[in-house]
């Protein structure tokens, strides 16, 4: 089919992005000696365990030391510590690409697993819930308000809107979150300041879900407030520029009702860039989740990232998460491409 080609071309680029990020990760870990330190720590830990085990059987301290050293050499070879970091590079890249993300040092999943993939998978839905809810609300408000504002371009209200958009862009979502907590949780005591469930959490079922929503109000609200301004302004501008095109005048001259003109000949034509804006918003709030989840102690991937960076750094988790973020990012970009092809016949044949 005609639109397979553009999508495939795009997919290749995006896979290139994935690889490039991965190589960047591995190279910066290797070149800064980070990766060596990580592996040494792992080896050291295993050797400590071995020493206690060996001490049971080998009494002579000199003998014990020799046995331990032999084991250490073995382990170092196993982890590739005897080679320089760049010779390990292909292996590492391959491992991460096959989603073999390794074990966390300190962090655990709620079921106690140390496997990084378990930990991340457990957090993924929480982040997804947060940002998709915010996205849906932003999209709804942005589309309705943005397209109505286009009809009032140049009025006082329209100008006020552009100021709102600029301000909204200038506000960091995480700081807005702090304000929200101060106001709604601390001052008014209306909403929970953070976390995902009350303590103790309600039994499973509807109540639990409602509790979750209750806790999601402030983070979602913060996210929406900072994304909706720029978004509705871009919807407005996009709609406005389509509205000035000749075919809209023709549609009116045809005697189509105004509603049809707006929907079919303005919004529908402006849809591809509008959807682009939306997906770009999604990808940026994906990164932004690191901050907002930290503020609200929302146990998603973002908070996990923060936990892995702050306190005792958990390198395996950091690498894995950066990769997963890139993966999701790239997936969203590709989704955008698919939507674009569906929405705009012009790109189908190029």
């Amino acid at each position: 089919m005609s639109f397979v080609r553009p999508l495939a071309v795009r997919a290749v680029t995006l896979i290139g992005v994935l690889l490039a990020v991965l190589v960047l990760l591995v190279v910066s870990l290797g070149a800064t000696g980070f990766s060596d330190r990580m592996l040494r720590a792992v080896v050291g830990e295993e050797v400590r365990g071995l020493r206690t085990a060996l001490a049971e059987t080998i009494r002579d301290p000199v003998e014990l030391e020799r046995a331990v050293e032999a084991q250490r050499g073995e382990l170092e070879r196993f982890y590739g510590l005897d080679r320089s970091w760049y010779t390990r590079l292909p292996d590492t890249v391959l491992r991460v690409i096959t989603l073999d993300l390794g074990e966390a040092r300190t962090l655990k999943s709620s079921s106690g697993s140390r496997r990084v993939s378990d930990i991340i998978l457990e957090r993924l839905p929480n982040t997804a819930l947060l940002i998709t809810t915010a996205l849906v609300i932003t999209a709804a408000i942005g589309l309705v308000v943005g397209s109505t504002m286009a009809a009032r371009a140049g009025t006082k209200l329209d100008r006020a809107l552009s100021y709102f958009a600029a301000t909204s862009f200038a506000i960091p979502a995480w700081w807005l979150g702090i304000l929200m907590i101060l106001l709604f949780a601390f001052q008014l005591r209306l909403l929970p300041a953070g976390g995902m469930y009350s303590t103790p959490p309600p039994e499973a079922g509807l109540l639990r879900f409602l509790d979750l929503l209750w806790h999601a109000v402030l983070p979602v609200f913060s996210l929406v407030l900072v994304t909706v301004g720029p978004y509705l302004y871009s919807v407005r501008t996009m709609t406005l520029s389509v509205a000035q095109e000749d075919h809209v005048m023709v549609a009116r001259a045809k005697g189509l009702p105004e509603g049809v003109v707006v929907r079919r000949h303005i919004l529908r034509v402006a849809a591809p860039p509008i959807v682009t804006g939306l997906i770009l918003g999604l990808t940026s709030s994906l990164g932004g989740s690191i901050l907002i989840e930290t503020v609200f102690n929302w146990r998603g991937m973002g908070r996990l990232y923060f936990d892995a960076v702050a306190g005792t750094p958990d390198e395996a988790v950091i690498v894995a998460l950066t990769f997963v973020f890139t993966l999701l990012y790239v997936a969203a970009r590709w989704l955008l491409e698919v939507l674009y092809v569906l929405l705009d016949p012009r790109v189908r044949y190029t």
Binding site: T13, G16, V17, L25, G287, F325
Partner: peptide
Amino acid sequence: ADVVANVPLLPLLIFLVFVV
């Protein structure tokens, strides 16, 4: 440009600042 434009900014920034 295509590759760099599609990179997730904040996670990578965090990673690089953390490591480098």
